[in-house]
Amino acid sequence: MARLPGPFLCWALLGFVSISAPGLAVEVKVPAEPLSASVGNTAELTCSYTTSVGDNFALEWSFVQPGKPISASDPILYFTNGHLYPVGSMAKRASLLQNPPTGGVATLKLSDVHPSDTGTYLCQVNNPPDFYTNGLGLINFTVLVIAIAVPPSTPVCSQSGQISVGGSAALRCQSSMGEPRPVYNWVHLGSSPTPSPGSIVQDEVSGQLILTNLSLTSSGTYRCVATNQLGSASCELTLSVTDPSKGRVAGTVIGVLLGVLFLSVGAFCLIRLQKERRKRPKETYGGSDLREDAIAPGVSEQTSMRANSSSGLLERPPSASTVTTTKSKLSMVV
């Protein structure tokens, strides 16, 4: 059996390894758990890699909105040929923790985060000829929205329902602003008795007060107070409970009074009409008709007056002209 020389065997083995072995793998590491930051803060999305950085090294960060596929990602920044290129809507707020990212750290810094920054971030490293893996890492990032605490705004009070004896009423109270969310409390003001506890149902969360089986004592002023840790505000409304039975009695009394008034006016007009008829002068007839109190020719007024006295009327003393006329007539007869 022929013996191969040592140097030839070594070169043969090295050639075989160089042909059959693949290139070095690019390995990207990102946090396994989701990351988060509060609105307005700066977030650091950690990404590291291992590879032999050469002239073809390239880094890309991109972003995918929630519910969309990875293929729909939008670029944030590139690093290639020794230069950094921020792009897209986050260009002014995106940067690298280390620039250039050639030391195995590709962490992304995102300043003044917005709620719209919530989504999936992709850290991808390319370094030909290291193509053994795709060099991709995914990070789920959430922006936490923390509301600013504010006191309750002045609430608005309103009422609805059948506001009468035996009916039900709903009083409502609501503030448009307030953080933490305010609670509501209703109180009945004034000296009038407070409705019995069984007729009140109050919801401190919704600000609603239900009054059932209303009575006249349920009338009055009600105040709603909205309260949270930073302060309180209030509003008021007046509830007027009516009694339908009193309304019917009042209507009957008014009807009777109107009837009496109409009858009185009618009687007054009738009496006045009769008086007007009595004051009218008697009608006279034409020249051919004689008046009942006319004196016949040749009969003195004295004779007429005596005739009247015999019928029960007062006798008027004769005038001088009447006496003279009578004497002249007697002398003519003699």
Rank of each mutant, 00 (worst) to 15 (best):
residue 258 L to T: 15
residue 276 E to I: 02
residue 262 F to Q: 07
residue 249 V to I: 15
residue 248 R to G: 08
residue 255 G to Y: 05
residue 251 G to N: 08
residue 273 L to E: 09
residue 250 A to T: 12
residue 242 T to E: 09
residue 270 L to S: 10
residue 258 L to H: 08
residue 242 T to Q: 10
residue 279 K to G: 05
residue 261 L to P: 14
residue 263 L to I: 10
residue 243 D to N: 14
residue 276 E to R: 12
residue 265 V to N: 10
residue 269 C to W: 06
residue 278 R to T: 01
residue 273 L to D: 09
residue 269 C to D: 04
residue 252 T to N: 07
residue 278 R to K: 05
residue 250 A to K: 12
residue 250 A to L: 15
residue 239 L to F: 11
residue 239 L to W: 09
residue 276 E to D: 04
residue 264 S to W: 12
residue 253 V to M: 11
residue 275 K to M: 04
residue 271 I to R: 03
residue 268 F to Y: 13
residue 247 G to M: 13
residue 278 R to S: 07
residue 248 R to E: 06
residue 272 R to N: 02
residue 251 G to W: 00
residue 253 V to I: 14
residue 262 F to L: 04
residue 262 F to S: 14
residue 266 G to W: 08
residue 252 T to P: 01
residue 264 S to L: 07
residue 263 L to S: 14
residue 259 G to L: 14
residue 237 L to A: 13
residue 268 F to A: 11
residue 276 E to T: 02
residue 245 S to G: 13
residue 242 T to V: 15
residue 263 L to V: 11
residue 265 V to M: 06
residue 278 R to M: 00
residue 250 A to W: 09
residue 239 L to V: 10
residue 270 L to F: 15
residue 244 P to V: 04
residue 267 A to Y: 06
residue 273 L to Y: 13
residue 256 V to H: 10
residue 256 V to M: 09
residue 255 G to P: 01
residue 243 D to R: 06
residue 241 V to G: 06
residue 240 S to A: 15
residue 273 L to R: 07
residue 250 A to C: 04
residue 253 V to W: 09
residue 247 G to N: 13
residue 239 L to R: 12
residue 264 S to M: 00
residue 248 R to W: 01
residue 239 L to P: 12
residue 262 F to E: 03
residue 251 G to Y: 00
residue 266 G to S: 15
residue 245 S to E: 07
residue 271 I to P: 06
residue 249 V to H: 07
residue 238 T to A: 15
residue 258 L to Y: 10
residue 239 L to C: 13
residue 274 Q to V: 08
residue 264 S to A: 11
residue 256 V to C: 04
residue 275 K to T: 07
residue 273 L to I: 07
residue 238 T to P: 03
residue 277 R to I: 03
residue 257 L to H: 09
residue 244 P to W: 03
residue 245 S to Y: 13
residue 244 P to S: 07
residue 272 R to F: 01
residue 279 K to W: 02
residue 275 K to Q: 00
residue 271 I to N: 00
residue 270 L to W: 10
residue 266 G to D: 08
residue 263 L to P: 05
residue 266 G to A: 15
residue 271 I to C: 01
residue 239 L to I: 14
residue 279 K to L: 01
residue 255 G to C: 09
residue 270 L to E: 05
